[in-house]
């Protein structure tokens, strides 16, 4: 009983039970670290990943709903050696303290900017309302997202 899906551009066959939340498939079966367990209740956003470009909470997403769909985690935004625009922005702004919530924030931001490249600050704040940060890194997270937005827009213009 395997479920076929794409994770960070690679086709995978997940063998977990179809009602297993995606979070545990990503972490426990596929060995990815970006999506984090925070509450399991859809309240904190630590487990946010993108599915078909939209931000979702993987802790409450049964595996069977992901069949044939494209999942992106923070590992899919770039690598340590070659970080992507969102990652570069967070690094440049030192936009983390403990960093536990940050991958979820980045995925939410990535989905928001993908859907709306010109998202205004208030729209970004609204989108992030679903993601909790306890260290109080909020101002930096916002700065990093604005920086990523600039970089992504410039890249689009150049292209």
């Amino acid at each position: 009983m395997a479920t076929g899906l794409t994770v960070n551009g690679e086709a995978v066959e997940a063998r977990s039970d179809p009602d297993t939340p995606l979070l545990y498939v990503l972490r426990d079966e596929l060995g990815l670290n970006g999506a984090k367990y925070g509450c399991g209740l859809g309240q904190c956003g630590s487990c946010t990943v993108m599915v078909d470009g939209e931000a979702v909470l993987s802790c409450l997403m049964p595996l069977l709903t992901v069949e044939g769909r494209e999942v992106t985690t923070v590992e899919g935004l770039g690598t340590l050696e070659e970080p992507g625009p969102m990652q570069r922005a967070f690094i440049a702004e030192n936009a983390a303290q403990c960093g536990y919530c940050i991958p979820g924030m980045m995925m939410r931001a990535q989905a928001t900017l993908t859907a709306n490249p010109d998202a205004k600050e208030v729209e970004i704040r609204q989108a992030l309302e679903y993601n909790l940060c306890r260290c109080g890194t909020h101002m930096r997270i916002l700065r990093a997202i604005r920086r990523a937005q600039d970089e992504m827009r410039n890249a689009t213009e150049e292209a």
Partner: peptide, 14 residues
């Protein structure tokens, strides 16, 4: 039963 599996994975925990 797709509905049941969806309920178990997405709804039951609350």
């Amino acid at each position: 039963d797709r509905g049941a599996a969806l309920y178990a994975g997405a709804c039951a925990s609350c």
